[in-house]
Amino acid sequence: MFDWNDLRYLLALAQHGSTLAAGRALRVDPSTVQRRVAELERRIGQSLVQRETAGYRLTEFGQALLPHARQVAQAVEALEQHLESARREAVGVIRVTCPEPLVSRLAASGLLDRFHARYPGLHVEFVMSDRYLDLAKGEIDVALRSGDTVDGALIGRKIGDSLWAVYASRAYVALHGQPRSVDELARHALVGFDAAMSGHRAAVWLRSVAPAARMAARNDSVLGVLQSVKAGVGIAPLPTAIADAEQELVRVLGPVPELARIWRILTTAELRRTPRVAAFFDFVVEEIDALRPVLTG
């Protein structure tokens, strides 16, 4: 199979008759035109152009291929016009829910700036929550969510991995030492979630491995747990993405396999078809490589 983009070089060479003029029209070096046409010939297995004193002319096979190449170019141009029209139509607000610590990391990464530069008519509005908001009820448009997804009505795509480890402050370690295994967690003061977050996987895991441990503090958010651990109140499992970036913290155990989950971007089938949500969803998928360190650390 050949690269469809190479047809552009063949069409330019056929129109202008020389690699210099074709390169000028395409804003590339003449050698690039020659190389891409040669690669197209190699892939197809036929000669398409013949070099002469006055420039290049198409071979008989090249002439036969020319109308088909023009049809492809017209189809690509129509597609680009359609996409540009869709971009102009993509206006409004996209309500995105995600854990609060993720927002500052997204802002610092430049991802949101690139999105708004591409779609100036769109505005991302974050609805920050450590609990799951209901997409089907219209509370939000898109969710950036880690964990198990049991709602079959949602459309999703994996965008990264959520890793958790156990952390303590340097001051806490200096005073109380650190656990060398999960079994030793019960000997330390722990920081966890309150009743509103009792179903969170970190809370469930702590209850299973250290049911008799002393809880030094309970919080209703991951950021609250982070601040308590930084203050030296106790130790706790935290996402590696945010905890590894804190100079005051030390990773004492993990990552913990039982706490690992998949990060997904989620929306409903109906919203996925709207221009504004489709623009954001497709942009996030396109930027997965840049997004991965934001999510995982």
Rank of each mutant, 00 (worst) to 15 (best):
N5L: 12
L11F: 05
A14M: 06
S18E: 09
V28Q: 09
D29V: 07
T32S: 08
A38K: 14
E39H: 13
L40P: 03
L40M: 07
E41C: 10
R43T: 07
Q46Y: 03
Q46M: 01
V49Q: 01
V49N: 01
Q50A: 11
E52A: 07
T53Q: 15
L58E: 08
T59P: 04
L65C: 01
Q71L: 13
Q71Y: 12
V72K: 05
V76R: 12
E77I: 07
A78N: 06
E80D: 09
Q81H: 15
E84R: 08
E84W: 03
E84P: 02
R87I: 02
R88K: 06
R88P: 06
V91M: 10
G92D: 14
V93R: 12
C98R: 09
L102W: 01
R105P: 05
S109C: 05
S109I: 02
D113S: 10
R118K: 06
P120Y: 03
G121W: 02
H123D: 14
E125S: 15
E125Q: 14
F126N: 03
D130P: 01
D130L: 03
L133Q: 04
L135G: 02
L135Y: 04
L135Q: 04
A136V: 15
K137A: 12
A143V: 00
A143S: 04
L144D: 03
D148G: 10
T149R: 11
D151L: 08
A153L: 11
K158V: 14
K158H: 13
I159N: 00
D161S: 09
S162Q: 07
S162Y: 08
A165R: 09
V166I: 08
Y167P: 12
Y167D: 09
S169D: 09
Y172I: 04
V173G: 07
A174F: 13
L175A: 15
L175G: 12
Q178W: 08
R180V: 09
R180L: 11
S181L: 09
L190T: 01
G192C: 06
F193L: 08
A195K: 11
S198P: 05
S198I: 07
A202H: 07
V204F: 05
V209G: 03
A210D: 01
P211S: 00
R214I: 10
N219A: 15
V222W: 14
L223H: 11
V225G: 01
L226K: 13
Q227G: 15
V229G: 11
V229E: 11
V229Q: 12
G232H: 02
V233M: 15
V233C: 15
V233E: 13
P237C: 06
P239M: 04
I242N: 10
D244V: 07
Q247F: 15
V250Q: 13
R251M: 05
E258D: 11
L259T: 05
A260G: 12
R261M: 10
W263K: 00
I265Q: 02
L266S: 01
L266G: 04
T268G: 01
L271H: 12
T274H: 06
P275W: 04
R276H: 13
R276Q: 13
V277Y: 02
A278I: 05
F280E: 02
F280M: 00
D282S: 14
F283M: 00
V284N: 00
V285W: 08
E287M: 01
D289Q: 14
L291F: 06
V294D: 00
T296M: 13
